[in-house]
């Protein structure tokens, strides 16, 4: 239908108002502030060019945070995709109780990151945790909580996030996988394809553009990891699990160093926007279903 100018105004104005005031404006103001010495109760504000950025990038703690979050993203996102896809693949055909299973499998994602952090602090721990219970049954000695181990802490945090997010990936992929007509599956089996063949030639093509979109979402989420590390490790042991978001928060609100906090926040934004550019470029070459 043809939309008049008034129509368009009516349609776009609410969203424009909402986003302008509570997302775009703060983001832009924040960006401007990073080039100055602004802080909420600074008595005078001066332009300072890239000084804040230089200070942040030169801070070994930020460097450690950036390195940690890069590792985090590069490990967590593929794992979430693979595990999420595998579970969705297993559920692709209807069976008795599948609906109930789908809801149950959604539960980890329904747990907030902070709740999951609280939960896993205890579950990894000794006296009442899952890990030592299982080890005890297997007759093996107790393992101390990986959250206290310099080499294992980041992996433990990654594992917790993968636990939480892989079901969400399943949730997103399952409708598409489940709607592949049965003939396609039968064709593939008849033509002698193994399960890898079926995955590659039947399942993946049905969800390829979706996978790209999901990857973008997961990447943005991983780059902004905050809630989980806040509770699970506080960024430790040492600097093993600091993330840029945690760094920003501690600087801006913990020790009142607003310019540094705001600047590192914008660096996170820049990374996500960069990933977004790649996403847009890549999805241009794909054809939407």
């Amino acid at each position: 239908m043809r939309l008049t100018r008034r129509d368009r105004l009516f349609l776009f104005a609410p969203l424009a108002f909402l986003l302008a005031g509570w997302l775009v404006l703060p983001a832009l103001l924040g960006l401007l502030a990073t080039f100055s010495t602004y802080s909420p109760f600074a008595t005078s504000v001066q332009f300072s060019g890239l000084a804040n950025y230089a200070a942040v990038v030169r801070d070994p703690l930020f460097v450690a945070a950036a390195r940690n979050v890069a590792v985090f993203t590069l490990v967590a996102v593929p794992l979430e995709l693979v595990i999420g896809f595998s579970v969705a693949y297993m559920l692709r055909r209807p069976f008795q109780g599948r609906a109930a299973l789908r809801v149950l499998l959604l539960l980890p994602w329904l747990v907030s990151p902070i709740a999951s952090g609280v939960m896993w602090h205890f579950l990894f721990g000794g006296a009442t945790g899952i890990v030592d219970f299982v080890l005890g049954w297997l007759g093996r000695p107790d393992m101390p909580s990986p959250l206290g181990d310099l080499r294992l802490a980041l992996l433990a945090v990654i594992a917790v996030e993968v636990w939480r997010m892989a079901p969400f990936v399943t949730f997103l992929l399952l409708p598409s996988l489940a709607s592949i007509p049965t003939e396609r599956w039968e064709e593939a089996t008849l033509s002698g394809a193994s399960w890898t063949g079926r995955v590659r030639h039947v399942a993946i093509p049905a969800v390829r553009p979706l996978l790209l979109t999901i990857t973008m979402l997961l990447t943005g989420l991983s780059l902004g990891t905050f809630d989980a590390v806040l509770i699970l490790t506080g960024g430790g042991p040492g600097t093993a699990t600091v993330t840029p978001a945690l760094y920003s928060y501690n600087r801006a609100f913990g020790v009142n160093d607003w310019p540094v906090g705001a600047t590192s926040g914008w660096l996170i934004a820049a990374a996500v926007l960069g990933a977004g550019l790649i996403y847009v470029r890549l999805s241009r070459t794909k054809v939407a279903d």
Partner: peptide, 27 residues
């Protein structure tokens, strides 16, 4: 099309990217 994809990128943006100035603005 790009604008629509832009919304997905916005949806992926972590809040930390702008909450600090947001809290100041709200104040």
């Amino acid at each position: 099309r790009v604008v629509t994809q832009g919304f997905l990128v916005l949806a992926s943006l972590p809040a930390m990217a702008y909450v600090i100035p947001l809290s100041d603005l709200m104040r």
